[in-house]
Write a protein that binds this DNA or RNA. Structure first.
Lengths: 230, 230
DNA sequence: ACACTGCAAACCTCGGATGTTTCCTCTAGA
DNA sequence: TCTAGAGGAAACATCCGAGGTTTGCAGTGT
């Protein structure tokens, strides 16, 4: 195994074992390199890799720190990974969302505070009559994001967030708007909101299922007539 | 933004835009470095980072290649991330599994082939009477893994795989075995299998829910009496 | 008490040199 | 002719050392 990979494992080990706690500062590059028995160059490669997945945070002129290691932060890194997937796996991702989002919406109906719900309402009303594609995407994303937040489970929230990444959703919306399905989406969002506001988890779950399934259905058709794969 | 991060984005862009397809070989370090306008050292840091998340695959003496970018490969990288989470978020992860696994089990009851089911049976029978902790963990992991595979959705499968990472599960089992709950777990596995073999998705879903909830319940108690946090 | 200056620490980037591994070709022998 | 082995070229792995840039902090003057 390359020394760099070894270094990655060792740093990982130091963090997991507790030798390095969240927020701790690592020894300076030169010292840590000597301690791990490799050159600064190689160590930097290891640090950079751990940086990409948000485990480490380097600040020029200051030092290298272990991040908070919160689920949100770490799962956020998954967005980066999801971006790489091609169109032919979009349906698979959507199928996962079809499992997660209804469950999350039901949880949100139970766990959201009144303030959260009020903000959700504001979000729905904040959308103008003929919105641009950008504001539509942003509004849709934020709506589902608030619900995910409302579950009270940061892991679930981050996971949904990643899966609904801007890329995937943007692609979906770009087509959806052309079909004029905006109104229906807005109605369904409203229905989901009403169910949450009424504290009806099962109703909320059902509307969420309807919502996601509609998108899935449309996407399946769009992909079917567009690409001829499989 | 540091030049290395820029390089990461550029390489990512080249892949997403299709300029670099899965399996393609990148230009050699020196050339790519010049093309991107940075030094080899900095480029190597970028490559190493993309390597950690399985987007690139470097082979000494050969070259650097874009991986297949399959969901399994990319989501696998998430296992690395999940390893960093501390005990206080285990319940949150388990809550997500409680959503995903029942749904997956139901899907498996519909989609698994007869061969898959036969192998699942073999797996259950293959466990000796008084297994070691290691074989127990391995068997349990493989059982749920086969079911996840049986959904036919690689994204869902990899996701479940990552969340049920060895670390988390090992910790859970270590305690479970001490309580003598092995028999009950085995019964539930058997019940899940029977439901799948009978092609009863809803029954399979219910048993999976029962199974996961049992683990969750036990874990909640164990954490409650052990740690005094929150 | 506040603001500015200066310095030191730490990371950032670069370029080159040397070691290792892999792949491919060429050759010698069967 | 086919095959096995030797050799070399290509590409990555690792290291080292030299500046450059940013940040945090202490010291200083008002």
């Amino acid at each position: 195994m390359p020394v760099t990979d070894e270094a990655i494992d060792k740093i990982k080990g130091m963090i997991i074992s507790g030798e390095l706690a969240p927020g701790d500062r690592l020894p300076k590059e030169a010292d840590l390199a000597q301690h791990l028995g490799l050159s600064r160059s190689s160590l930097r490669e290891a640090v950079k890799a751990l940086c990409l997945i948000r485990v480490l945070d380097v600040r020029q002129g200051d030092g290298t720190y272990v991040t908070s290691l919160e689920p949100k932060l770490l799962l956020d890194a998954m967005t980066f990974v999801v971006d790489f997937h091609r169109d032919d796996t979009v349906l698979d991702f959507l199928a996962v969302r079809r499992i997660l989002e209804p469950a999350a919406t039901a949880m949100a109906a139970t766990n959201m505070t009144e303030e959260d719900i009020a903000e959700l309402a504001k979000l729905l009303e904040g959308l103008e009559e003929s919105p641009t594609v950008e504001s539509l995407v942003a509004n849709d994303l934020e709506f589902h994001r608030r619900i995910a937040l409302g579950t009270g489970n940061p892991v679930l929230c981050s996971l949904i967030d990643s899966l609904s990444g801007p890329t995937t959703r943007a692609r979906i919306w770009r087509g959806l708007t052309q079909e004029g399905a905006v109104a229906k989406t807005r109605e369904q969002h409203r229905a989901i909101y009403d169910a949450i506001a009424a504290r009806e988890p099962e109703l909320a779950r059902s509307w969420a299922t309807v919502h996601i399934s509609g998108v899935e259905q449309w996407l399946r058709n769009a992909l079917g007539e567009h690409g001829e794969n499989s």
